[in-house]
Amino acid sequence: MSSETRDIVTDETNASRTAKEQTYRAIFLACGILSVLTTVAIIATLFSDALTFWSEVPIEDFLLGTNWSPQIEGSYGVLPLVSATLLITFGSAVVALPIGVLTAIYLSEYASDRTRSILKPTLEILAGVPTVVYGFFALVYVTPALGTIFPSISTFNALSASLVVGIMIIPMVSSISEDAMSAVPDSLRQASYGLGATKFEVSTTVVVPAAISGIFSSFILALSRAIGETMIVTIAAGSNARLIDPLDPFSAFLNSVEPMTAAMINIGKSDVDPGSLTYKSLFAIGLTLFAITFVMNVVSNLVAERYREEYE
């Protein structure tokens, strides 16, 4: 059949052929533009509702207010939510960054080819586990296990959410860092071996510094992922919006907190009236979240571009 179509095609006149080519080109271009339209739609919807929200609640009250109680008191200070997000991001970073980098070092410097070919896809699968499942792990298994160590821990707490978010973002840190470390040319390693360095010294003083831009960009991306993480914190961290006291991290971690994403879900799944202020506050938090993650993604790209060591 295909040989017949070829014959047909060569019979086509040039003009109609060009018209056809142009049409296909236009169709594919339209597909590409759709992705831009998605961004435009995100920004437009977030801004239009967030701006009407800020016309009713002054933006400084929103950004600097320390009380979040939209449905009962009608007070919309976002700081408690932001502080909870930062708390959980900090906790997950403590777990994920060192472990992620050490994993990357092991995969790139120590593991044999066969080990790596097994470990890398397995880590990928970890990254593919749905976050609602991670949230379930945190609530049903991790929190009771933590309860044997900290008897005062509450059912919903920031600690188990942080631990599990940390485990979730490890593959992200390790895979991007490992790519950066594998890109370090072997000649650098050979040179330092030639100078008498041990494998430990090569890994820590040659490979890691040479790959530092990739490692940092992986950190930023992973943290941005942790900030935007929704289901784990909604299920496991709870919905108690309170300002975190940085001087008392212990009680902050052991009690229920409400990060930005969890607050959005809690508003979104309760039937709020689409015209109400609470509904619009959803978009104000959404815009704040979008802005933070967007800036972090851009910074991560810049770091990777700007501080990359070029090797020929």
Binding site: S35, T45, R225, G228, T230, I265, G268, F290, N297
Partner: peptide, 27 residues
């Protein structure tokens, strides 16, 4: 413009999923 599309796709991949929910709700 094409570079813009490419950067934009990279950034879209990093947008939190809950924001896509807001998009669905509003749009």
């Amino acid at each position: 413009f094409v570079t813009l599309i490419e950067i934009n796709i990279g950034n879209l991949a990093g947008v939190p999923s809950v924001v896509y929910g807001l998009l669905g709700l509003a749009l």
